[in-house]
Structure formats: structure tokens, C-alpha cells
């Protein structure tokens, strides 16, 4: 495992910890999109179907379990926890997330590395992950006061995607036959979606002012 990959996984982990910290300790999910969180829970459920079939390493198994458990925990908090759910900004979290699941499933059926159940679900999860951040970005645009933890959550999530691209470039040059169009193209699309956010995040950080995204 190269350093980019490890750093990517760690920023992904940090993003989840930041979000859980906000929800669990402050008992607030203000500014967090439930739609995005539900999509991530679906992404991990579809991708990690191989958890008990295909063993890679202890690291891999533990990380998969962490991402599965944390994504479903966050959804549970936002939907069921009696204090947290009251802080959910339902009025502004209006992205029609169900409508992007079906196209991703169709795409997974058409474009996959092998037409088997697990490979189709894997491709589906890759396509869905690429667009899963959209409801969150839309909600941020509509949020007047974006708190630091929410902004940091999205920043670390975006950093994870950028680092994965560096990881692929590194692997392309160091491993023979390492060509994976599906995850590369989907991964680049996913990273580009963060472009605008990164621009305004860095600007607010440089000028030491609160983050605000133009609508």
C-alpha cells in the first residue's frame, strides 16, 4: 500500500470521525444532508458485499466494517435519535436522491468489469459514490451558517478523493496492468464535484472568515 492510498483512507476516516463527533457530542446534524448519508450507506452496503467472501487483509476488513457501521450509525442518528433528528434541516435538504440511484444501477448493469452479481453491485457502488456528495453540496449552498465541523467533514471527504487519484497515478506506474477505467473516470468526476467547494473553503480559510457558498 502506498502513502497516497493510506493518506486517502485516513482522511476518509477523519471525515467520518468529524461527522460522528459533531452528531454524537454536540447532538446536532445541522447542515448535514441525510440524503447524502443514505447514499453512502447504500454505497458501502453494495460495495462491501464481498466482506466475508473475499479476504484482502485485516486492514481492509476492519476499514470496511468501520465505514459500514459508521454510515448506518449516522443515518440512524439523523432519522431516529430524538434530539439529533430535530436539528436536521429537512426543508433545505430537498435533492431527489432516489432518482440518481436507478441510473447508477442501470450504468452498473451496462458498464462493469464482469457481468456477475458482485461485479455489477461493485460498479453500481462506484457510480453512486461519484454523485453521492451532490445533496450535501446543494444543502451547503442553502445553509446560511455553515459550521466548522460540517465544512471540515466535506473538506476531508474531498481530500480523500484527491489522494485516491494520486494513489492511482502511483499504482499505474508501479504495478503492471493497473488500468481501471470505471473507478478512474467515476473517481475523477467525483473529485471535480468538489472543485467549487475547495475553492471557497480555501478562500475562507485564507481570509479567516466563515465559509459561505454562493447559490
Amino acid at each position: 500500500m502506498n502513502l497516497f492510498r493510506l493518506a486517502g483512507d485516513m482522511t476518509h476516516l477523519v471525515s467520518v470521525v468529524v461527522l460522528l463527533l459533531k452528531i454524537h457530542t454536540i447532538k446536532s446534524c445541522a447542515g448535514v444532508s441525510l440524503k447524502t448519508q443514505e447514499l453512502y450507506a447504500l454505497v458501502f452496503a453494495a460495495r462491501y458485499l464481498d466482506l466475508f467472501v473475499h479476504f484482502v487483509s485485516l486492514y481492509n476488513t476492519v476499514m470496511k466494517l468501520v465505514f459500514l457501521a459508521s454510515s448506518f450509525t449516522i443515518v440512524w442518528y439523523m432519522r431516529r435519535h430524538k434530539i439529533v433528528r430535530r436539528t436536521y434541516d429537512k426543508e433545505h435538504d430537498t435533492f431527489r436522491h432516489h432518482f440518481i440511484v436507478l441510473p447508477c444501477l442501470v450504468l452498473g448493469l451496462l458498464l462493469n468489469e464482469k457481468f456477475t452479481f458482485r461485479e455489477v453491485m461493485w460498479a453500481f457502488s462506484i457510480y453512486l459514490e461519484a454523485v453521492a456528495i451532490l445533496p450535501q453540496l446543494v444543502l451547503l449552498q442553502r445553509t446560511r451558517n455553515i459550521d466548522n465541523l460540517t465544512a471540515q467533514y466535506v473538506f476531508f471527504l474531498g481530500a480523500y478523493r484527491v489522494l485516491y487519484i494520486f494513489n492511482w497515478i502511483y499504482r499505474y506506474f508501479t504495478e503492471p496492468h493497473f488500468v481501471h477505467w470505471i473507478s478512474w473516470i467515476a473517481g475523477i468526476v467525483q473529485t471535480l464535484l468538489y472543485g467549487d467547494f475547495f475553492y471557497y473553503y480555501i478562500l475562507s480559510w485564507k481570509n479567516n472568515v466563515k465559509l459561505e457558498l454562493p447559490a
Partner: peptide, 10 residues
């Protein structure tokens, strides 16, 4: 089996 070594990523 082109995808095998990719499935080691999260």
C-alpha cells in the same frame, strides 16, 4: 480477471 487487484481498495 482485470479487476482483482483493484478490489483491495476501499
Amino acid at each position: 480477471n482485470s479487476g482483482s487487484n483493484l478490489k483491495d481498495e476501499l
